[in-house]
Amino acid sequence: MNTTVLETSRSAVAGLDSILQYRRIAIAVGTDAPLSNCKTTISLLRYRGEHCVAVIDPAHRGKTTQEVYGVGGETPIVASIADVESPDAMFIGISPAGGAMPQSLRTTIGEGVDRGLDVISGLHEFLVEDDDLWQAAQQSGSRLIDVRRNLHRKTASGISFRDGCLRIHAVGHDCSVGKMVTMLELERGLKERQRNAKFLATGQTGIMVVGNGVPVDCVVSDFVNGAVENLVQQNEEHDILLIEGQGSITHPAFSAVTLGLLHGCAPQGLILCYEAGRPHVKGMPHVALKSLQHYRELYEALASARSPAQVIGVAMNGRNLTAEQAEIEKREVQEQLGLPVCDVYRDGPGLLVDAVLRLQERSGA
């Protein structure tokens, strides 16, 4: 292949338009990936389960995804792509800190590429920048789609969004507390009540679930606000937009994307997400988490620097609580904050749906 053509095609960003076309997805996680790194796998099984035919994980072969991940029913876990019947794509199912690719996963990806499968990855380490994978893909016809790779190069303008477009944004006291799931469940609940609502993805997993969005943690910092503002503008014909949150405003590593999202989407309503019982920042035992009231006040103040915003509800992640403990926790937080509190995993999103509709009525949106 002509070198100029090769380099030009590698420099182009693959479109996300094809992500939803796949109907027989093999999810690859490498060998014995920690469960904490497998949130992409879990979300694909939860929200695109009808399209997921297997998870490739040699360490757990022979088990079902329900046994290992708690979702997916009888979807099998297999040792290699050779054990998957007629897959049409391979999705990378891990989200490790830093986005680096384990060698065992790279081997699995190589096997998929050799078979001509399209590979969709949300890692920071881009498939198209791996010379061996790229050359193999040219020979087999495999498409390498890096969902974090982007060309967003526009700063925000501080525009006013359409009157009647209510923007709800998930914020958290830390990373990995359920911000994406909360908003996807909220979308489902609003649609069940015949409301014109749409979830907007801002991370790799959300993009792989719904097929579009902005990977804010891989956008150049000057352009995060502008990329999110543009995403909202492209979708403001909907009556309610549900913007996925990222990171935490006090997280020592990831606060920048959190603030960019707040000012880019200019939300009127905020859903505060937290994990009950978590004492410190994920992966940083030396950094203690603050009170929910502190986060409420901080998020409201920072969001309102662009336009007025308020926390309208709390999404509790009670994965480490018994049902009885969860009920006690919800009552206590509701009394403390004077806000509706629910665990969308256990209870569904009903209370948060009610909160969104109350805000919509008050705002006249």
Rank of each mutant, 00 (worst) to 15 (best):
H286E: 14
D347Y: 04
G189K: 01
D118Q: 06
A82K: 15
S104V: 03
A79L: 07
Q135R: 13
L241M: 11
T75C: 15
C165P: 10
T41N: 03
E237W: 12
R278E: 06
L127K: 01
K39C: 02
D146C: 07
K282H: 12
E187K: 03
A288I: 05
S80W: 06
S140R: 08
M180S: 08
M180C: 07
A365E: 07
D343Y: 02
V344M: 02
L339N: 06
P102G: 08
Q325G: 15
L16W: 05
T107L: 10
E67N: 13
F161C: 10
L242Y: 02
S248C: 14
Q336P: 02
P76W: 05
M284C: 09
C165H: 12
L302R: 13
P340M: 05
G313P: 04
G338Q: 10
G30V: 01
N320R: 14
G93E: 03
N212S: 13
H263W: 15
G158E: 13
T108P: 02
Q138G: 14
E74D: 15
I249H: 03
G260C: 08
M101V: 08
K39G: 00
T182H: 05
T65N: 12
S221M: 11
L123S: 01
G62V: 09
G260V: 03
D222M: 07
S255A: 15
G178H: 00
A12D: 10
F199V: 06
G164N: 15
S307M: 15
A276G: 08
G245A: 07
G30S: 03
V13F: 01
S86R: 14
L289N: 01
S304W: 11
L321S: 11
L241A: 09
V71Q: 08
S121R: 00
V287M: 10
V119P: 00
M208I: 03
E187T: 01
R193G: 04
R193N: 09
R61D: 09
Q194R: 11
R61A: 15
D17T: 11
C165E: 10
L117M: 06
V68S: 11
Q135N: 09
V311E: 03
P308T: 09
P252C: 12
S157I: 13
T65C: 15
C52F: 04
L20S: 13
S80L: 10
A79E: 14
Y295M: 07
V209H: 02
H51I: 01
M101F: 04
E335Q: 14
T31S: 08
I120R: 00
L337S: 07
T108Q: 15
Q336L: 14
V341C: 07
L241G: 05
Q334T: 11
V224N: 01
V341I: 09
A97M: 13
V177P: 00
R278P: 04
H286T: 11
D347W: 03
D163M: 09
S80R: 12
